[in-house]
Amino acid sequence: MALRDLTRSVAGGALSSGMARLNARHPWSHNDHFHRWILDHLPVQRRAALDVGCGQGGLVATLAPYFGEVVGNDVDATMRVAASQLCSGLANVRIDGGDWSRLDGPFDLVTMVAVLHHLEVGRAPEEVRGLLSPGGRFLAVGLAPPTSIADHAWDVASIVTNPVIGFIKHPRANRGGPQPPPYPVQDPTTTYDDLRRHVAAVMPGARMRHRLGFRHTIEWTKPADR
């Protein structure tokens, strides 16, 4: 049983409810938190970038000053509308709703934030590889169900630090107000270790690391001679 599920059974769910209230008072976006990590790992060549599953377009807008062209792709029409509105003043941004794997590349950067577990894990890394230019980078932030000892250790660390990070980012208690449209949600099913094997088979040398915030990151640079 995942530790997050265990907290729901302790003291009749009181622990889970208490933590949920604490986190709600100081909310933070676990996905947006990793935009800085992406900016710190951009490729040297920056002609075009693709954000798969762009959601409301936050990362697309963040990448726009660094690339000649940025394409945000999302299958959800509500997300595309939100992304188009956010990026309406950015001439080098395009929001697309077609099949991301069939877009005209190559791209110097392909990003996925909390998206890979929505896709066919056996195919997606190969499709990313095909879209990348030589020297291009794949940067992903993902989720996986905790199964190993290491997974559970990082889960504990994330549970403990989640309210601390929230307080640091938003010290003033949340009082409610208008909320953006919710992202489509799907629970991950591929374990961290299985995903690492899938990625390594297609992207030799890829770096995959556990992170706080119940996330992991994947970083890979396509060899310049391929």
Rank of each mutant, 00 (worst) to 15 (best):
Y192Q: 13
H33Y: 11
R175E: 14
H198S: 05
P184D: 02
V128P: 09
W28Q: 04
A82D: 06
D51K: 01
D96K: 00
N73Y: 01
D193P: 06
L119Q: 14
D104M: 05
Q186H: 13
A206K: 04
P178H: 12
T161W: 14
V44H: 02
R129A: 03
L6V: 14
P180H: 15
T7R: 15
R94Q: 11
P182L: 12
G205C: 10
D187P: 10
P125E: 04
G68F: 03
L86A: 12
R102F: 00
I218V: 10
V156Q: 01
Y192N: 07
D155H: 10
I165L: 15
G68H: 01
D5Y: 06
P43E: 05
D225K: 09
Q56R: 06
V141C: 12
D155M: 06
Y183H: 05
R226Q: 10
D104R: 02
H152L: 13
S16G: 12
D40E: 08
L109V: 09
G13C: 15
M79G: 01
M1D: 03
V185D: 10
T221F: 15
T161D: 07
A200C: 05
P146V: 04
A140L: 08
R25K: 08
M1S: 07
V199L: 15
R21L: 12
Q85Y: 04
W100C: 01
V185F: 09
G142E: 12
F167A: 02
W100V: 10
V52G: 02
V141M: 13
H41T: 02
P134L: 11
T221W: 11
P181V: 11
R226A: 10
R209H: 08
P182R: 09
P163E: 09
P171K: 06
